[in-house]
Design a protein around this nucleic acid. Structure first.
Ligand SMILES: [Mg+2]
Length: 316
DNA sequence: AACTAAGTCAACA
DNA sequence: TGTTGACTTAGTT
């Protein structure tokens, strides 16, 4: 009788739930608009149709709701659009047992003057630094010791990480929709699959992407080997990272240099306009394989998440 | 019925 | 791609 096909039934999730589902599935916690589209379409064939309509709604929701934030692309990273992520304090938005209608919206306190960015909701991230729109001075989180990062200039070998767990909502359809996947309630069929692991990149030990993209954390990634990347570069041309090298990196492409790279996002994320920018505090030590040649230091990348971005970029 | 979350259409940057 | 407003639909109280 009901020859209604799976793809004809609208999934029992609001657009906000769908976006959240997509972002949670991302190892980095971030996705571009198009990646969100793709995720939703792949997961729910229903959205293969009427794309103009629902994709408009997706954009509308991203902009309108404070639970979704915009994170700029890493400098020099090609591609269109910014990244989107969950606001680190939006908590569990579906605790009321409905993926269609939340009990309350997640709303930030009204922006007064220019000192907005304060939260109205309870944070589920105890260690999150949030200094959203603070104009000038950054105030580190209590458990964050600025002195920890004083050693940047002599190379960081220890990882300082403030673990902030990824969110992992159980997206199982609710009671009334238990048959959505054509299987008993409680089945995990059709649920978001763990995202692909970040690609490996020479010179970078892939950082573990646990935590929120905006979380303050440091990690180290040491690698010894050939460094084909760090030739002298200007603007954003020479370096595949899109940064200009400031150290004594006159070495020709492909020459043997010992590269000890580390990443350390030591400063709070900044917010300019509505857009968040990841810290640019990643560095590397270069020790030339031939004695006598100077080593050096340069700023290369951003946070672990930026590194992951760069990683996929370099891979190409 | 009032209140509020969510969906649609659409202008515009 | 992203923001915003006007309007509609619909769930909660
Ligand atoms: Mg938003």
């Amino acid at each position: 009788m009901q020859s209604r096909k799976f793809a004809d039934v609208k999934p029992p999730y609001s657009y906000i739930a769908l976006i959240t589902m997509a972002l949670e599935s991302s190892p980095s916690g971030m996705m571009t608009l198009n990646e969100i589209y793709t995720y939703i379409m792949n997961k729910f064939p229903y959205f293969k149709e009427n794309q103009q309509r629902w994709q408009n709604s997706i954009r509308h929701n991203l902009s309108l709701n404070d639970c979704f934030i915009k994170i700029s692309r890493a400098p020099g990273r090609p591609g269109k659009g910014n990244y989107w992520a969950l606001h680190p304090s939006c908590g569990d938005m579906f605790g009321n047992g409905s993926f269609l209608r939340r009990a309350k919206r997640f709303k930030l306190a009204k922006a007064k003057g220019d000192h907005s960015g304060q939260l109205s909701g309870m944070s589920s991230y105890g260690h999150f630094n949030f200094y959203g729109n603070h104009p000038v001075s950054y105030k580190p989180y209590p458990s964050f010791n600025p002195l920890t990062f004083g050693s940047l200039s002599h190379g960081l070998s220890q990882a300082q990480h403030y673990p902030i767990p990824h969110k992992s909502t159980d997206w199982s359809p609710q009671m009334n929709y238990g048959s959505y996947y054509g299987s008993p309630v409680g089945s995990t069929q059709g649920l978001p699959s763990p995202g692909p692991s970040s690609p490996g990149v020479p010179g970078f030990s892939p950082p573990s992407l646990t935590g929120h993209p905006l979380s303050v954390s440091t990690f180290s990634a040491t690698h010894v080997g050939t460094s084909p990347y760090y030739s002298h570069s200007s603007a954003n041309g020479g370096s595949p990272l899109g940064h200009s090298a400031s150290g004594p990196y006159g070495a020709p492409h492909g020459s043997n240099q010992t590269l000890n790279s580390f990443c350390s996002s030591s400063f709070p994320t900044s917010q300019v306009g509505g857009t968040y920018h990841l810290p640019v505090t990643v560095g590397s030590h270069v020790q030339p394989s031939h004695p006598g040649l100077p080593g050096g230091y340069t700023t290369l990348a951003q946070s672990p998440y930026s590194c992951a971005q760069y990683a996929s970029q370099i891979r190409t």
